[in-house]
Design a protein around this nucleic acid. Sequence first.
DNA 1: AAGAGGTGCAACCGCCCTAAA
DNA 2: ATTTAGGGCGGTTGCACCTCT
Length: 282
Amino acid sequence: MRCSKSCRLRWTNYLRPGIKRGNFTDQEEKLIIHLQALLGNRWAAIASYLPERTDNDIKNYWNTHLKKKLKKMQAGEGGGGDDGAAGASGSDGGGAGGKTGTGGGKRPAVPKGQWERRLQTDIHTARQALRDALSLEPSATPAKVAPPPPTPPGSTTYASSAENIARLLEGWLRPGGGSGGKGPEASGSTSTTATTQQRPQCSGEGAASASASHSGAAAGNTAAQTPEYSTETSKMAGSAAGAGSAPAFSMLESWLLDDGMGHGEVGLMADVVPLGDPSEFF
DNA sequence: AAGAGGTGCAACCGCCCTAAA
DNA sequence: ATTTAGGGCGGTTGCACCTCT
């Protein structure tokens, strides 16, 4: 009474070896919150940073725990305007070319190439956000944070994400303090390298290849298509981690602003971006 | 102890994309 | 060029379990 699709789902979400069950750690939670803010409800993409969790798991966790948590946090701050997670989920609703489109249920047309294109969009957005962030404070006085630029109506798709990225970078620039002060080792540094390294372990054995392709859809794609990135970026990430946050930032800066770089951009973010306290983020 | 309400999570649904026929 | 099957994805639902009254 089960169709193949149902069986596959059962496998990928439940039976597949290597799935971690049970409570999410603080670190995982923060990572999810950050990634959700950056990527919107792209659970598969988010899941690729948490190799032991399925997208379904993360999605459920977000819907049942984190949404409320963030709402509470927002309410606690007397937050006006955006409703709690909405800040994060400005991309949540229809953002990011996601298919949510609540009412119609029709996914807005996602250009071909799916992941690569989406990621490309993310990267452009990140670059733009960085430019914004840098242009807001050319005098290197990070304490002063200019209000986010007004968002033109036409460009709302990623507006909140871009803002968040800008804020993240601003926080990062804050010397020694704030969310970003922790440096790259803060939390997510293991994820992508772990992802890319763990993946092959499953791919060799029959049905397991299906699972391998699941949780690591994004990372798998990028890693497969740009084989040079994993070594290159891990090298960079390693040096970044060793050098502390400022060098890491300058590296990120050059990485984001270097239009010449066409490959391997995705993994670096995962490895280098420090994920600090999410409460500062919203 | 029993019922109501809330919560968590596996499963389902619908849409889309891609590759093979 | 078209059809079909397989697979990926995000949103939503159903139900078992838990907590509260």
